[in-house]
Nucleic acid binder design. Structure first.
Lengths: 192, 192, 192, 192
DNA sequence: AATGAATGAGTATTCATTCAT
DNA sequence: GATGAATGAATACTCATTCAT
């Protein structure tokens, strides 16, 4: 139903609106205005406000996961894998700040029906990273830090970005990815 | 205006409600019900929904900053300072999960009048940590990572906590503080 | 019930408030603030908002009617009577602008129970003036103008005052009374 | 926005409601019920309660002024002009009692933004009448009565009408216009 | 593919009023 | 005499959503 390009435009406008006003704080009218169409027109493309949020989150996770799958193809070294994932995550983040802000802040906003698939994607995403950390585990003999905790500390460094990141002031996403990788790997693995 | 104890009760109830539904998603009716009082009764203590949020954020920041001031009194070593701040932050976080979730997620919700003092407190908080990182600077000769970025990566590790932390599964706040400090210091300072 | 002086103070404050915001537009809180007392304190003197309005209107009508009774004592000539009444009305009006504005604008605001006595006073007031016009009737043989209408045209000239009168710009109440009398008598009686 | 006929219907219903309960005393629900539509439906046509009042007042003033402009076209004699204006005013008044009651009673209800254009129309209306009285000035050598005051006494006779006029009892608007003109002109000009 | 018109349910907030003290 | 605390009912207004066209 509906021209996919138009839908993508709407999705992008909606992400901006949700990012700046919050999902609950934004009205469908705000979204329609941002997408430069009538209120009723929106409902041709989306059946509900929730569905728009779902589409934003689903699209973002899918793109991220697909990107990682491609980037990791053929790579064996877990450190290199981690690097790729951090780079990919932050590159996508800085290129899609609105969507990622919505992803980070509105992760609980969707109720069961629509929320379940998104939660599943999120779990897959966590599992992907967790798997890589497990592979790194040999270098981490004393288990000072639980892997389950480490995963979320890493996500915290990256996802908190939406609250402060300013490319001009803070450098490129690639620089940022270096910083995150450096701190995390060196911190976790206690090697010089 | 209004008994301060009753106000503290309301604040706590409101923090729970805002934490679970989001500030915009929660209604004043929800807050009143959680505080077990009438809708109109709430307005005897708070003049607006915004004012409740302000009180939560203001109180949390003030308590955090006061706690740090006390904990840092007489301490010279910046590593030790950092440890105190991380411990204090996470201890408060885990003891006041609802408030901290609200702090983390609704940092932009307050408009000018009420938002300004909170933003100022937030800036003071960042400056406090930044100051400590600056003192650590000697060990950090190559400036691989900008201090301004490092501060926010640290905050990210800590503040993201509201999205995943489960004491039972993930250990005590003190353990978590150790993990954060370990990763951050070792990662940042590149020492064994 | 209640010290009558304090009650008079409250009445005066309330008249100011009702005059500036309208009876419906003003809140009991506004009145309490203007009277410099607590909301609940007001209810010691008045049992309801309506009762305050009643008191204002009742007091004003009673004072006006008493004043006229005194001023007309012993006077025979209807033209002189009319002069006295117009003078009295406008003098009271300009000395009690707030009350008279409330009288003029909120004449229908009071429901049955409290409204009835005020309506009766109003009718008495109209009858007083009508009686005087009837006495003038000899000079008015052709009945170009119904007395019932004339009374209200006269009231119109006087009561509309609250919308425009400014002593500085428009002169004293006595001057105004002269103008009203002149126009009305000469206009009505068609004499040079 | 919105069909202008439907808007006119709503305006008329609203005028009735505001006339009978007062602007502050009437609720938007009352207006919606009178217009036989839903509360929210009203907001498709008007963005606020104030805007409805504005529309009533603006429409009434505009119609009155346009009517006078047409009626006065080509007339030279100021007495004739005055007659036309009084007739037009009272004819409109009696044909639109509700609107005119609202105009008369709620002249201060609109705040700045919406109030300003209405106040300007009111000023134009006063100026129109004042201009005619100035032209009459030659017959009025002793200046017993200030023109500025005379204008408002005339308005008083006419606008007070909403408090008492009953066509059956008091005669047609045309008769009333005669009475007003007679009293005012004869009274002002002191001619037989 | 798109929209103008409409609505029921909900929003934050204010109201006149009460009552224990 | 006076007030702090509280409330049920109402306020103006906005919401996500629908439907005829």
């Amino acid at each position: 139903m509906g021209n996919p390009d138009r839908k993508a435009e709407i999705r992008a406008s909606a992400a901006e609106v949700f990012a700046s006003k919050g999902f609950d704080g934004a009205s469908i009218r705000d979204v329609a205005k941002a997408a430069d169409m009538s209120l009723a027109g929106l409902y041709y493309y989306y059946r509900s406000k929730d569905e728009i949020l779902f589409d934003i989150q689903n699209e973002a996770f899918t793109t991220l996961l697909d990107g990682h799958a491609e980037a990791l193809a053929g790579i064996k070294d877990p450190e290199e894998k981690l690097q790729k994932v951090i780079e990919g995550h932050l590159a996508f983040f800085s290129a899609n700040l609105a969507s990622m802000k919505v992803m980070s802040r509105e992760s609980e906003a969707l109720p069961g029906e629509l929320g379940a698939p998104v939660r599943e994607l999120r779990r897959r995403y966590v599992r992907l990273l967790r798997g890589i950390l497990d592979e790194l585990g040999v270098d981490h003999p004393l288990h000072e830090i639980k892997t389950g905790v480490a995963v979320f500390l890493l996500f915290g460094m990256m996802n908190w970005m939406y609250t402060w990141y300013d490319e001009e002031r803070d450098g490129s996403a690639a620089d940022l990815a270096d910083a995150v990788r450096l701190i995390f790997l060196r911190g976790l693995l206690r090697r010089p």
